[in-house]
Design a protein around this nucleic acid. Sequence first.
DNA 1: ATAATATAGTTTCATATGAAACTATTTTCA
DNA 2: TGAAAATAGTTTCATATGAAACTATATTAT
Lengths: 157, 157
Amino acid sequence: MSPDANPILRLQGFLPYRLSILSNRVSGTIARMYARDFGLTIWQWRVLAVVAEHGALRASDIAERTAMDKVAVSRAVARLIEKGHVKRLASARDGRSSQVTLTRKGRKVYDRIVPRARAYEEQLLEGFSEGQRAVLDDLMSTLLARARQLDDKLDGK
Amino acid sequence: MSPDANPILRLQGFLPYRLSILSNRVSGTIARMYARDFGLTIWQWRVLAVVAEHGALRASDIAERTAMDKVAVSRAVARLIEKGHVKRLASARDGRSSQVTLTRKGRKVYDRIVPRARAYEEQLLEGFSEGQRAVLDDLMSTLLARARQLDDKLDGK
DNA sequence: ATAATATAGTTTCATATGAAACTATTTTCA
DNA sequence: TGAAAATAGTTTCATATGAAACTATATTAT
């Protein structure tokens, strides 16, 4: 058998394609829901979420925990400040950065979003057993670790 | 226990977030590889892939099979024609549309990409048993079907 | 100390994207 | 028929995005 005996690749079965389609569909649905019901983008939601979860964070911490780049964080924080959902606290230690924290209003919005987010996730997983959910978690973790390795490798070699 | 006894959502464990991170990492790696080695975007690659897979297709067929919108298809086809990877055949039946097919050059590029795409996918799944791969396939199918339902539901209600 | 370098975050600029408008046909139905 | 509506695909326009330049501050090395 020659090396390219099977020269056709079925796009529908190609894992990167399937991941992209699934992720875009999920993100799109959520984005519309957050925009419609809370006036937030996905990036603003991510910032809100990590600040709610971890307390005061610097922009660089937010970037690290949300997989957003610093430009996206800068813009999302600026919009959230305009909306009154977060505020900046000047950092005593480092005049270049500040800590971002939730305002009372931001906390209220967050508290309304969380159940919606959980409900969406639950609908996605409805009928999945605990075992299946654990398998999914493992697969996601393994694939993400692999994807990171392969990404690092690409430029390295 | 009150309804919002657990008001914190761990973003790192939230399935839509994890899907997005994984998909973006995978797509980003592939996009850099295709750009660097073949001068193609992901969208151009998708068009090339479905045309190679199915033969002559109209723009609307391409859109359907790649989950791209018609604007993205129009642009990707235009670029691929400039590069000489595909050509248009006027449709006898419908003067509004044309069939897109691979050129010999496009076929050659496709034949060089396919093994790279397969290799990447295989590295992602390295060490996974057949059983695990089947589970992953099932999960992806189920989640995509659910995601579509929930997306339809959002505007409907 | 202080000049050189590094870092945090913002702004700018060039490109990517998608919704809506548009062009060219084809289909419907009065 | 032929006028109205629908459809395929392209172009336009307004917004989103990320890389690079920039500003302000902090750190390092002499």
